[in-house]
Structures are given as structure tokens and as C-alpha cells.
Design a protein around this nucleic acid. Structure first.
Length: 820
RNA sequence: GGGGAUGUGGCGGAAUCGGUAUACGCGACGGUCUCAAACACCGUUGGCCUCUGGCCUUGUGGGUUCGAGUCCCACCAUCCCUACCA
């Protein structure tokens, strides 16, 4: 360690400097978070502002990539800044450690996923430590640890007792390659989010979490998400997909069955000329029983269910369907309309049945055209009447026609009037539909938290009693998926006594989606090794909500929605005070190279380790944030990295040129006298303080914060080389500028700045109060005023500050090039 | 189809409240060092012209304003999300 009064060596060699400071921070427990709940200790909640700074936890795949470096460096900068501003900072780290990659590796090599994962975690931790992140390793957790998933299971039981976890049969997404079901959110464009295989629909009994019960809450509480990117809020809004409409009851012509539909256009009910059931609709079989159409309908339904989700979801595809031979009665016209089965009607949206209005719905229009079904106009737009022929579905505004008691009304009024009419006759009511589906959480895979229930012949589904948690994953030999969970092969484990009646029972063999694990990890950080509870209310309530959350936008409708849902359920269960987990969210852009996302398959990956070896961690940290706006996708540049290294060298030389000495106080105007260069230098330092503080604290504009320090360093370097700091005022100003640059740069490049800080006579820069600018030094005596005439710059004049407008105009008019 | 965003030098980008467009960095060019090259350092660097000066310039075209990269209207281009959701 440098001792005060010592100047820096001539050469900047990052490796030993970084190793030394990392060891020192570790030894001094410099970034230990307080309070954290632990066994046998009573945590006291401090009386000072807190800052919970969190980055989305990594999946331990073996190596961290540049995206991680950028993500954690941003969090680190904010954490350092808040700490030096006097806040109690919580900046934890963990691993989202269950999941398919480790399991797939196990299938290939036979090595247990727990072993693979543990090795990967050790590796990724070492890489993060090399980057000097100010994390509290004491609170580190991995979601695959039994002491963690015990509480994941415990939370699952809370859902179960609140009726929010249920097992039911449904058409679900099945990935044929990974041999497991997937949540709706994990299907992208009809393909498995993980492996890219085309997803099939299968009718299976699975575990769901009833997130749809919280659809409205999830929408309403977006007001509490004070600083989330609009983009993410919009994506969640669209995903939840609230639409107002009506439920309408249709009866079969024999009066035997009532079939409800959901429609957003109850106003068009007079135009409903046919009716469609989804192929999976439970009434399909019964309706066609004994009819000549039965065989054709069953064939069609069978073919539809074998079609891939992608194919079925293709709106461009020609409409297909089959007539059932049955009719239902249109409740307003009293007319029978034919019932068809068609695969463009989806079982899991609305009621799985629709009233088809070909005149005013594009899909219904296409279907009617294909099958020769009559099209009726019930809305007339501007300049149209009831007889204007429809060449395509008309979906615009207009007046109702051919619709009895609705005639002449506009669309919105007609919607309300129809809802009332239906409600008065018990034929329907105004209602709200959501696109959001319940969250399918069971997986037929090994490497996840076992679902803590037992199936008993007598008692049905029985929760595993809390004192028997965790339900540990059994050791097995063959991890390969076989269409059912590999856990089923562990018969000793599967066969148990029913906790309720002690009779023979079988354990649930499915494991939980790993998004369940990551839906509450930010709560467990506050009590990572507590054995008697998932967390402690008082400590949790002190830290929550997370003040700043940072991660990739790819989780907009996955993790970020699920974590909000969990927080609301736990809040309703009286376990957490927070209603929302993440007050502020920042979504970072990706780092590209050669125009594409860095990936092993494209061979365009730059390894963080390699950059650290060549340039040092400080340079890498500086570069990933200097590249451009943190929210944007930016192209990696090797030369850009070198530029940041050069900048650190420049700062190194500037600090070295100060010679031995101690920290200086900010020179005031009286100290600077009439030394203009010195005043300008101090002023630049003050401007940098203001800029860097705002850029880190409010704007998330790290690249401009770094530029501001670079400008300050440039002023210092230039001043030194031009001999502008010869006098006593200049020397003090230069030293103050160097000191300020080092202090402001610390959150970005903590190792080298700590080294420099000691050379400048300070110690423990990480505890140094964050600098405050002196506004009086920012004021100028004179400013340049630009004189424009008709938008053209005509003159520039130096004037004293504080002149009145008329005085300025008079001065301007007196200028020769203005007066002419 | 629906939604969200973006467009500024050779490149990444800055300009935060409508007030000197191009900060900071990369690259390029010139110089110093070197036998030489690389590195490093110093300097120059939006474009054009009739060059001690002038004109033009923020995707395109209009508008508001004393003044527009910034506000309004229209268009063009690109990217992302979503999509048979009744």
C-alpha cells in the first residue's frame, strides 16, 4: 500500500494495484451490508436513508459475459455513489442456479447438475471479484441450495393455501426437445425460449399459479413504479391485455346447453350470423353426438390439436373450420345461427367460444367468405347506410343500423345499451377480459425445486408439512427427460406415507419453473442464511422496495411480471409491507460486436478476463460505461478500450506531477486572487462535481459523467504542460482539480483511484463523503453573448453578468457589424 | 395488423428548460521520440468555397419563434416488442 507523502511510480501497472485493493476491502469488510437477518442475532434497523441497489442475478453458466460486466458495473457505480452520500447501501449478489443448461450438461457427461453448478458458481464469483465489485459476499445465495429452495417450497405452500396454486388440465405448451411444458411467457413466436424448438400444444394436467387473479392489480399498481422505462410498462400492459366487453349467453336451439362468449363488441350482436367453438371446447363432443357431422368434427378437432402453436397462431393462414350441424339462438334476434368449430378460436382466451360478426371483424369476415356464410352490416360509417355493401369488415366508428333498439346510436353508446339489455334479461353482462394466462409452473425436469406436495389415493393432493421442508431433490443416475420428470425414477423417494392419513401416497415428481426461484430472491438476500424463516419482516421492510433494479429488457414480461405478482401475494398474506418490489428499474442495452449480439455460436465474444489481463479491471469498467448511453445497444470497440486505458494513464501522470503532499481544501475566490487560469481550473472541477453527481444520481448517464471527468483531467494536463500553475494559487487549484477528478472517478475505477487518493495524501476513498460543489465558484463575472440577426450569428460580445435586457440590446446595437 | 423507440461528423456519441451544434472518446492527418516501425506524447480534424473571410450543415418537406437538433404537422428509413386475444 502506498503511504502518504509518497508519489506514484512512473508506470501504471493495474494488476498488483487491483489485487491489493481488493484484498484490503475484503480484509476491512468495507462493503458489508447492515442490517441482515442471521441466526441467533437481532438485527437493528438503522435510522438513516437506505439504498437497495440490485442487479438481476446471473445464471451461472461458467463465464460472465460483457453484458454482466456492464450490468454490475452500473450497479456498483450507483452503490458507491449512494454510500459516499451517506446512505446505508445493500448491494447483494447471488445465482439463479437451477435450470436446463446444467441439467443438459449432466445428461451429456453424467456429472450431477449440483456439481457442475457449484463449479460454475465458483468460477463466476472469481470473475466478479476480479472486477472489484463492492458486493457483500456474506449475503451471497444460490437458488439451488436446499437452504434457499426450502423457502421457495414454503412460499409455494402459501400460494396453495390461498388457492393461488392449483393443478388442472389444460392445453399447454410442450417443448419436444426439452421434454417439458413451458409457461406462455417462455414461448416466443411459437418456439421454445430456451432451445428454439417449435412448441406443441398438449392437453395435460399441470400446476398453475393464478396470476390472472392479479391482472387488475398488476395494471393498477404501475402507478407505484415511479421510474420504470415506458417501454417495459407498455410491454406489461400489452401482455396483461385488458379489454372491456361483455359476456353473452347463447343457448342451443334445443335449449339444452348454454354457451357463454366474451366479446368486445356487444354492440354488433345483431350482426352475429354464426358461432364458433374452439376445437378443444368441452362441449364439442356432446353437441355433435349422434349427428352425421360428428366424424368430420372430431377429425378436425384432432388435427387442430396436433398443429403446432406457431402454425395455429399464423393469422395469414387460410381460415379452416367445420360445421357441427347444430345451431344456437342469437339472443337479440331470436334467430338460429350455425355453430362451427374453427382453430382460430382459442380455448384459453375468453370462454373458448365466440359469436362471429363477419360484417365488423376481419377474421370472421374471412371465415364467412371461405364458407359462404351471410354477412350483415350493423354499423354504418360516414356516408354509408344499412344497404351500403361491405367489401371488407368495417371496424371503424359509426351509427348502428339494422339493430332494433340500438339503431342510430354510436358504437360506444350501443355497447353500454346492449350490456344493460343483456343484464336485465340475465343473458349477459358487461365484463373485462385479460389476455394474461395463468402461470404454468410445473416442469418435467430434474434440476429444479421439487413441488412440495404428495398425491394420496384417499386424501388427494396433500401439502408437505412445513416441518418436513425442504423436500430434497433425490440423487438419481439418469437425468434424461422421458416425457415425465426424471424424479419419477427415484421410487424410494416417490413412495411416501400420506402426511394426512399415513396411507400409501406418491410425491409430486415435477419441479418448479426457475422463474419461481427468481421471483423472491431479492427478499431472501436480507436473510440469506436464516434457518427459521424465509426472512424477517422488520429487516425486509427496511430494505424494500429495491431502490434501483438493473437488468436486461428481455425480462419485461417474464421475471419482472412474476416478481411483481409474488410481492403482491406475499403482501396480501401479510408477510411483506411492500406492494411492489422494484421502485426504479433500468434496462440496459446489449453489447454488440460485428453488428450482432455477442454469442459463442457467432464467435464474436470478447472475454472480460482477457480484457482485464491486458488493460486491468478499472479500464474495462470505465469502457463498458463510456461506450454510449447505458440503455442503448452499442458496438464493442477494442480501440475504445485502449482509449480508456490512455485516459487512466493521463490521470496517473497528472496525479504523479502533483508530487508528494496532502489533500487540499477547495480554494476559495480569495485564495485564487487574480489568477484566471487557477479560477478556471477550480470552476471546471466544480462543474464536474455537479455533472457527475447528476449523471449518476438522476440521469443514468454514465458516459457523460466520465466525459466530464475527462474534460477536467484535460484542463489539468494542459495547464501543467503549459506551466499555468506556477504560482501558489495555481498549485492549489491544480492539486484540487486532480483530487476532485480522482474522487469523482472512484465509482467507475475504484482500484486505481484509491491508489491515487493515497498518493494525494488521503485514505479510504470509499468512505470519503461525496464532493459538493460550491455554487459561488460556478458563477462567472463575464459571459459571451451571441448576437443574432434574423437567425444569423452576427457578433459575439463579452459582457458582465447580470445586465438588464435593454442594456444588452444597447450594447449589441453599438457593435459595428450590427449597426450597419 | 397493433404498440414502443430511434435517426446529429468517417465511427460511438454530447447538447438536461427552445439560446455559440458536433463536448468526450475512437479513427484519420501532421509533428516529437526511433536506424525504422509499433507504442507513447504534442498538435490539427463537420462540409464546401473565390480561404485574415464567407456560405452550408442535426433523415426529408413544411410550420411556430427574435432564435429549432430540441416544439407542431406530414413523410421516409431503421430497430425492438407483440400478434387469429374475439
Amino acid at each position: 500500500m502506498s503511504t502518504p507523502e509518497q508519489i506514484l511510480p512512473e508506470r501504471y501497472d493495474p494488476q498488483p494495484i487491483e489485487a491489493r485493493w481488493q484484498a484490503r476491502w475484503d480484509q476491512e469488510k468495507a462493503f458489508r451490508a447492515e442490517p441482515v437477518s442471521a441466526d441467533g442475532a437481532t438485527a437493528t434497523v438503522p435510522d438513516r436513508p437506505k439504498a437497495y441497489v440490485l442487479e438481476m442475478l446471473p445464471y451461472p453458466s461458467g463465464d460472465i459475459h460483457m453484458g454482466h460486466v456492464k450490468n454490475y458495473t452500473m450497479g456498483d457505480v450507483i452503490a458507491h455513489h449512494r454510500r459516499r452520500q451517506g446512505a446505508a447501501v445493500f448491494h447483494p449478489m447471488g445465482y439463479d442456479a437451477f435450470g436446463l443448461p446444467a441439467e443438459n450438461a449432466a445428461i451429456r457427461t453424467g456429472e450431477p447438475p449440483a456439481v457442475v453448478t457449484r463449479r460454475n458458481i465458483d468460477r463466476i464469483r472469481r470473475q466478479m471479484q476480479r472486477l472489484g465489485f463492492a458486493l457483500d459476499w456474506n449475503t451471497e445465495l444460490a437458488t439451488c441450495d436446499p437452504e434457499y429452495y426450502r423457502w421457495t417450497q414454503w412460499i409455494f405452500l402459501r400460494f396453495l393455501e390461498r388457492g393461488l396454486a392449483e393443478r388442472r388440465e389444460a392445453a399447454v405448451n410442450w417443448c419436444p426437445k426439452d421434454q417439458t411444458v413451458l409457461a406462455n411467457e417462455q414461448v416466443q413466436d411459437g418456439h421454445c425460449e430456451r432451445c428454439g424448438s417449435e412448441v406443441e400444444l398438449r392437453q395435460l394436467t399441470q400446476w398453475f399459479l393464478r396470476i390472472t387473479d392479479y391482472a387488475q392489480d398488476l395494471l393498477d399498481d404501475m402507478d407505484l413504479l415511479v421510474d420504470w422505462p415506458e417501454r417495459v410498462l407498455t410491454m406489461q400492459r400489452n401482455w396483461i391485455g385488458r379489454s372491456e366487453g361483455a359476456r353473452v349467453l347463447f343457448r342451443t336451439e334445443d335449449g339444452e346447453h348454454e354457451i357463454p362468449v366474451f366479446t368486445t363488441r356487444p354492440d354488433t350482436l345483431f350482426g352475429a350470423t354464426f358461432f364458433i367453438l374452439a376445437p378443444e371446447h368441452p362441449l364439442v363432443d356432446r353437441l355433435v353426438e349422434g349427428l352425421p357431422e360428428a366424424e368430420a368434427v372430431r377429425d378436425y378437432a384432432g388435427a387442430a390439436s396436433r398443429r403446432s402453436a406457431a402454425e395455429r397462431g399464423d393469422a395469414e393462414r387460410e381460415k379452416t373450420g367445420v360445421f357441427t350441424g347444430r345451431h344456437v339462438i342469437n339472443p337479440v334476434t331470436g334467430e338460429p345461427i350455425p355453430v362451427w368449430v374453427a382453430d382460430y378460436v382459442l380455448m384459453d382466451y375468453g370462454t373458448g367460444a365466440i359469436m362471429a360478426v363477419p360484417g365488423h371483424d376481419e377474421r370472421d369476415f374471412a371465415f364467412a367468405g371461405a364458407f359462404g356464410i351471410p354477412v350483415v352490416r350493423v354499423i354504418a360509417g360516414e356516408g354509408e347506410d344499412a344497404d351500403t355493401p361491405l367489401e371488407e369488415a368495417y371496424t371503424g366508428e359509426g351509427r348502428l343500423v339494422g339493430s332494433g333498439f340500438l339503431d342510430g346510436l354510436d358504437v360506444d353508446t350501443a355497447k353500454a345499451r346492449m350490456a344493460d339489455w343483456l343484464a336485465e334479461r340475465d343473458l349477459g353482462e358487461a365484463t373485462v377480459g385479460y389476455r394474461l394466462r395463468d402461470w404454468l409452473v410445473s416442469r418435467q425436469r430434474y434440476w429444479g425445486a421439487p413441488i412440495p406436495v404428495v398425491h394420496c389415493e384417499r386424501c388427494g393432493t396433500v401439502p408437505v408439512p412445513e416441518d418436513q421442508l425442504p423436500v430434497l431433490l433425490p440423487d438419481i443416475d439418469d437425468y434424461a427427460p422421458k416425457g415425465q420428470s426424471p424424479l419419477a425414477a427415484a421410487t424410494d423417494w416417490v413412495n411416501v406415507d400420506c402426511p394426512s392419513c399415513a396411507g400409501p401416497a406418491r410425491r409430486e415428481t415435477d419441479t418448479m419453473d426457475t422463474f419461481v426461484d427468481s421471483s423472491w430472491y431479492f427478499l431472501r438476500y436480507t436473510a440469506p442464511h436464516l434457518s427459521g424463516a424465509a426472512f424477517e419482516r422488520e429487516v425486509l421492510d427496511y430494505w424494500l422496495p429495491v431502490d434501483q433494479y438493473i437488468g436486461g429488457v428481455e425480462h419485461a414480461v417474464l421475471h419482472l411480471l412474476y416478481a411483481r405478482f409474488f410481492t403482491k401475494v406475499l403482501n396480501d398474506a401479510g408477510l411483506v409491507s411492500a406492494r411492489e418490489p422494484f421502485a426504479r428499474l433500468f434496462t440496459q442495452g446489449m453489447i454488440h460486436r460485428d453488428g450482432a449480439k455477442m454469442s459463442k455460436s457467432k464467435g464474436n465474444v470478447v472475454s472480460p478476463d482477457e480484457i482485464i489481463d491486458r488493460f486491468g479491471a478499472d479500464t474495462l469498467r470505465l469502457y463498458v460505461l463510456f461506450m454510449g448511453p447505458a440503455a442503448d445497444d452499442i458496438e464493442w470497440s477494442d480501440r475504445g478500450v485502449e482509449g480508456q486505458r490512455r485516459f487512466l494513464e493521463r490521470l496517473w501522470r497528472l496525479v504523479r506531477s502533483m508530487g508528494p503532499g496532502s489533500l487540499v481544501a477547495r480554494p476559495g475566490r480569495e485564495d485564487l486572487g487574480d489568477d484566471a487560469a487557477a479560477l478556471e481550473t477550480v470552476r471546471k472541477a466544480e462543474a464536474a462535481i455537479v455533472k457527475v453527481s447528476e449523471d449518476i444520481g438522476e440521469r443514468f448517464s454514465f458516459h457523460t459523467a466520465i466525459s466530464a471527468v475527462q474534460e477536467l483531467v484535460n484542463v489539468g494536463t494542459k495547464g501543467v504542460s503549459e506551466g499555468a500553475f506556477e504560482g501558489p494559487a495555481g498549485a492549489a487549484a491544480a492539486r484540487y482539480a486532480a483530487q476532485t477528478a480522482v474522487s469523482l472517478l472512484f465509482p467507475f475505477a475504484p482500484h486505481v483511484t484509491c491508489e491515487m487518493w493515497e498518493a494525494l495524501g488521503g485514505e479510504r476513498l470509499w468512505t470519503e463523503p461525496w464532493p459538493q460543489a460550491d455554487p459561488s465558484l460556478l458563477e462567472r463575472d463575464e459571459i459571451t453573448v451571441v448576437v443574432q440577426i434574423n437567425g444569423k450569428v452576427r457578433e459575439r460580445m463579452q459582457v458582465a453578468t447580470g445586465l438588464a435586457e435593454q442594456e444588452l440590446i444597447d450594447l449589441a446595437r453599438a457593435l459595428p457589424r450590427v449597426a450597419e
